[in-house]
Design a protein around this nucleic acid. Sequence first.
DNA 1: AGCATATATTGACAATCGTCAATATAGCCG
DNA 2: CGGCTATATTGACGATTGTCAATATATGCT
Lengths: 127, 127
Amino acid sequence: MIELTETTEDRAAGCCNPGLAPRIGPDEARELSDDLSILANPIRLQILDMLAQRDGHVCVCDLEVALPVKQPTVSHHLRLLRAAGMIDCERRGLWVYYFVQRESLADLRARMLDRFDALAYSTEQHD
Amino acid sequence: MIELTETTEDRAAGCCNPGLAPRIGPDEARELSDDLSILANPIRLQILDMLAQRDGHVCVCDLEVALPVKQPTVSHHLRLLRAAGMIDCERRGLWVYYFVQRESLADLRARMLDRFDALAYSTEQHD
DNA sequence: AGCATATATTGACAATCGTCAATATAGCCG
DNA sequence: CGGCTATATTGACGATTGTCAATATATGCT
């Protein structure tokens, strides 16, 4: 019943990788995938790109005219990006100006690259 | 009617960025966000990571025991990853072995980095 | 105060996503 | 053949997402 010693027999009848486990834990995987989900939208990518172009000086109405969605939708995406820490905003009179948070984006970039290089270039070739 | 010359007057009553447009077009934005959507899932990230660890030799049953979802769900995620060209598989008798498509991942990495560097480091500071 | 404009929020809706039980398919072995 | 095992597919379901019209909030102006 309590056969804890027979690690090779229990699992992997004829298979090959007994103790295989992801190097990325469930929590870190969740964190990274949450950030990726924010990026994974064409409107949000375009918003980020426009904000990056004119650092610190883009008001919502300018975004609206440049995007194929209506104002409440733009507002919605801005909120998501802001909640994710990728952008922030500042009110000036009647207008609200959004800008990218370069630090936060650089941080995400680094985390993504870490993982990505592990995926695309890593380790143990079996040939 | 055909007032093409009055660019400053038409739009942007009191606002600031008349001709703002994303440098990334709708199609490229869509393409990139599709790829990011595939990555934006913790199970798929873990699958990719395990495949990258043991290049060319991971059968589905090994993935199953290492993941917190049931077999049909694993199969579902493998299908998405495969459809996206990020992984592929090969049947050997009863088992199916999956492996990462490093080229395709490297390509995605490059496209992401292009965009990302534009976002995080780019251009025109207004201060 | 009252009006006008810019942005945010709400609520509804269709579409997509992640998951699983049930079932189907494919290959082995007796 | 028939049974067994590994993987895929189907179909259902709840959860999440993207969108918009309608409405609310905030600010400036007269």
